[in-house]
């Protein structure tokens, strides 16, 4: 049964920037439907790790394996460029902190959502548009904005559009880099709630990079704490936050502002 097997296996992944460590010897498994938060301060290597795992950045050592839809576990390094890119725009999603990095700002919201469908061969305008409208509804964007470019959208709407654009091909794994960063608190709350709902409805596996422990608490099942490129503590999100073991984790947790 595939549900009993990990979706993603990361082994001993390392990446250096010259003599400096980006991330060092990171290993973990991710299971279908599981949300894993990677937390740590700026420069702790969490984004480097995310980029290496998602093959946006080449790791210098280690291995990333992914269970394809046919159930076989494949090393990403063994795939050709074409296959890897196909995987990235069908079975994977990537939500950037800055929506402008993940959207085409000058084409309409409908085309932004429809692009992945067209990339896998959808050639019926009416159907593509219907699907786009449906997804705008799911991410709570008024459907009369379907022909507006994201330039005309607020930050929160752009982020929701970016999420719709990624989810339209029903990916099984989504990478998120600070998806709520830079948004107002009220906008952030709405987005978090939307993400929580989508993740559980669609059974998505998510690797979520965030420096916000409250976001990690709300969305993730499991957590890895990074410092200086290394994973220093990992475990159930509740456990890491309620009973942090490592000095650095205790510092992080004790630094959360109480409202």
């Amino acid at each position: 049964m595939t549900a009993e097997q990990p979706l993603l296996k990361v082994s001993n992944l390392s990446r250096f920037y010259g003599g400096r460590i980006g991330c060092l010897d990171v290993s973990f498994d991710l299971w279908p439907g599981e949300v894993l938060a990677i937390v740590g301060e700026s420069g702790s290597g969490k984004t480097t790790l995310l980029n290496c795992v998602s093959s946006r950045l080449q790791a210098q050592a280690g291995r990333v394996e992914y269970r394809m839809r046919d159930g076989r576990l494949r090393a990403l390094s063994d795939m050709g460029e074409a296959e890897r890119r196909f995987l990235m725009r069908t079975d994977w999603g990537f939500v950037h902190q800055n929506p402008a990095d993940g959207l085409r700002m000058t084409v309409s919201a409908g085309a932004n959502v429809g692009e992945r469908l067209m990339a896998v061969g959808a050639r019926h305008y009416g159907h593509i548009r219907e699907t786009a409208v449906d997804w705008l509804q799911r991410v709570e964007i008024n459907t009369d904005r379907v022909d507006d470019p994201p330039r005309a959208f607020s930050g929160g709407m752009r982020q929701r559009l970016q999420i719709a654009r990624n989810l339209v091909t029903a990916p099984r794994l989504v990478f998120m880099d600070e998806p709520t960063g830079g948004l107002d608190v009220s906008v952030q709350a709405r987005l978090l709630d939307l993400l929580r709902g989508l993740v559980s409805d669609l059974g998505l596996a998510v690797i979520l990079v965030t420096h916000d422990l409250a976001v990690a608490r709300l969305l993730s099942h499991r957590m890895m704490v990074m410092k200086d490129g290394r994973v220093i503590e990992a475990g159930l999100t509740d456990r890491v936050l309620d009973d942090p073991r490592e000095p650095y984790t205790q510092l992080l947790v004790s630094s959360i502002l109480q409202v």
């Binding site: 475990g235 159930l236 509740d238 309620d242 009973d243 073991r245």
Partner: peptide, 9 residues
């Protein structure tokens, strides 16, 4: 209780 629920190691 927190140990039994897994919140405390």
């Amino acid at each position: 209780l927190k140990m039994l629920y897994g919140n405390y190691a």
